[in-house]
Amino acid sequence: MDGEERFREIIAADEKVEPGDWMPEGYRQTLIRQIAQHAHSEVIGMQPEGNWITRAPTLKRKAILMAKVQDEAGHGLYLYSAAETLGVSRDELVRLLHEGRQKYSSIFNYPTLTWADIGAIGWLVDGAAITNQVALTRTSYGPYSRAMVRICKEESFHQRQGYEIMMVLARGSEEQRAMAQDALDRFWWPSLMMFGPHDSESTHSDQSMEWKIKPVSNDDLRQQFVDATVPQAEYLGLTIPDPDLRWNAERGHYDFGEIDWDEFWRVVKGHGPMNRERMAHKIEAWERGAWVREAAVAHAAKRTAARSA
């Protein structure tokens, strides 16, 4: 049996494609693009939350937030590790990000202005991410799927800590309640945008679904997220900023309003509130670290030379 035939058979049988297998170049390119984007998102995602570690209001919240931001670094690392099995190094992917040739999730181009934003990110952004990632554990590429399983396991606390912050604020002082509502107002729509364009607009989806890289469609995942989140907002006594939101008994789902797609595309194209700051931070950190990375290689080479001398 030739490679292509075997590849089709593996996909059809819902088995995992593994690094040694023949795969169409398009499959490889799509995976590199998606896994790298996912990895970059994790790493850039450290910034908006990292913005509050030094100001976290209690020792417990500081530890939780630091552990969570650390997880984002770890998850980026697992994903880069999976991408490397496709024959591209992490250094190369980081270079493509820094040159603006690969992207990260637009959600991280919004600023974290108050402590409540840390709650809202955990609850909504991680909630949306988990919805997507649970689906991705079934993706057809073995290393990507295994990274997703590891990540989902670790992230189970991320959403819960965020919701817990929101619960404390929602039953706190008037200022705290206002802070929580403001954070929901600002993060609700960007969270829905995380699922991407409508299925009808999404050029990549068909091929990705056929290859089983992406097992569930954007719109289905978005609906799943809205259905799960509305009762959570109600429990907090907060109002979701969407006048069109209502239960549709016939469909068994919530109906919700249309996303502002102009804003969506504006942010994707680099004109969101924080695009430039996020990239500047990332590139500066990388450049500041250059002498350290080089020194480590130089030291290792000297040690090796000394041993063989």
Binding site: Q34, H75, D126, A129, N132, F195
Partner: peptide
């Protein structure tokens, strides 16, 4: 976290 960032119209892979 995650997700697909869609391609910008006219952007080549």
């Amino acid at each position: 976290m995650s997700y697909s960032v869609p391609k910008i119209a006219g952007e080549s892979d």
